[in-house]
């Protein structure tokens, strides 16, 4: 005789900004992820449930949600690790506008990436001239430490300062800016420092380290932000930042 099927009680926040929780009952499975649970609900219980996912293997960064009060990537989060008394509570990521159910509008998140100038700007060198960057170069290694961000928004949702100040660029954008600044091929590295020191820039960070604590790929945006604080101060003292 097989053991009786165990049932998970799953509370999901439904609706837009002014939503409320709705309970679903989902059969518990071995090695089940939180994303599996949400997918089960949409396929078997309520086809109207809105959520976002793509790769299901921790690469695309699109399935992040608030799981039992904590922002997480749901495709790599096993239910067994986070379930409390047979219950799961799922909500959209904090610090972002809610479109519907578990889907947030990521526009402000990516606008901040642009505002932090986290993109490559070519220099004036002749075309075809290759910059020689050693793999062991200090700045190359600093860029490597910061560059594996999957844009999931977990750090942005976990950051207290983002929740306090709308203009704060946030850990993901600043981490990206630090990776870009460490690219010695960039043609306007002081432009990055200008971008991250205006308004709610890197000096707004309180070094709470929630970003590093929650990052699913174990990056340390706080460390990157500390680097931006240090380098922008040096540039300011050299008179390179207006």
């Amino acid at each position: 005789m097989s053991a009786p099927e165990r049932i998970l009680q799953v509370d999901i926040r439904r609706g837009g900004e002014a939503g409320d929780y709705e309970r679903f009952e989902v059969p518990e499975r071995e090695n089940q992820t939180v994303l599996d649970v949400v997918t089960y609900i949409q396929r078997h219980l309520d086809a109207a449930l809105a959520y976002r996912f793509s790769c299901r293997v921790g690469v695309c960064g699109s399935c992040a949600m608030t799981v039992n009060g904590r922002p997480r990537w749901t495709c790599r989060t096993h239910v067994a690790r986070v379930v409390r008394g047979g219950k799961l509570t799922l909500a959209p990521l904090a610090n972002l506008p809610v479109i519907r159910d578990l889907v947030t509008d990521m526009t402000p998140f990516f606008e901040k990436w642009q505002a932090a100038r986290g993109r490559f700007v070519p220099g004036d060198g002749p075309r075809g001239e290759m910059a020689a960057v050693s793999p062991g170069d200090k700045q190359r290694m600093a860029a490597s430490d910061a560059i594996e961000c999957i844009n999931c928004g977990v750090c942005h949702a976990a950051c207290d300062v983002v929740s306090w100040r709308e203009d704060y660029l946030g850990p993901a954008a600043l981490n990206r800016a630090w990776a870009a600044w460490n690219d010695v091929r960039d043609g306007d590295r002081n432009g990055i420092l200008r971008a991250v020191t205006s308004g709610g820039g890197c000096h707004t960070c309180h070094t709470h380290q929630s970003c590093a604590e929650h990052c699913p790929v174990s990056l340390n945006p706080t460390f990157s932000i500390a680097g931006l604080k240090r380098e922008s101060l040096k540039a300011k003292l050299r008179g390179e930042l207006k």
Binding site: T197, H203, T204, K229, S232, L233, A235, K236, L241
Partner: peptide, 8 residues
């Protein structure tokens, strides 16, 4: 906070 007020 500006770089200078941060330093201060």
């Amino acid at each position: 906070m500006t770089p200078l007020s941060y330093a201060l």
